[in-house]
């Protein structure tokens, strides 16, 4: 599936949810994210209120991404990034505007959280450039 197709699949779930339900949906994704890896301080993303560990690598043209967080919302966001981008071609990941996508789906994130998110996206961009 392309990144765009994955996004549409998620949108189909989100379409039915009101603002409160979207918040809980994100929390639930955080709760169910499996984080099996071992993470070190080098994986920590700067600028988050909570701790976020993100590992991004490429294998040929494919992106590999995994991570976790000690807070559920950020963990939910990591989950979304994994769902959208893991195993996808680097070109597609580069072209996908995650922040615009969140906004389009009316996922409200406080300003501070957006800062953390910027760090995560930066990490992805740096690795696949």
């Amino acid at each position: 599936m392309t990144v765009a197709e994955r996004a549409v699949e998620l949108e189909e779930e989100l379409d039915y949810l009101d603002r409160d339900e979207k918040f809980e949906w994100l929390i639930d994704r955080g709760k169910s994210l499996e984080a099996n890896g071992t993470y070190t301080d080098a994986d920590l993303v700067k600028g988050c209120q909570s701790k976020v560990w993100l590992q991004v690598s490429t294998n040929g043209d494919k992106v590999h991404i995994e991570g976790t967080s000690d807070a559920l919302i950020t963990k939910g966001i990591v989950g979304l990034l994994v769902e959208l981008f893991d195993t996808a071609p680097t070109g597609e990941v580069k072209d996908f505007d995650f922040i615009a996508w969140l906004a389009k789906n009316e996922m409200s994130l406080s300003y501070q959280r957006m800062q953390g998110l910027a760090g995560m996206l930066q990490r992805i961009r740096m690795t696949i450039k």
Binding site: F23, I27, D70, L109, S110, R113
Partner: peptide, 9 residues
Amino acid sequence: VHSADLGAY
């Protein structure tokens, strides 16, 4: 409960 999550809620 993480404080960041509670604050966001």
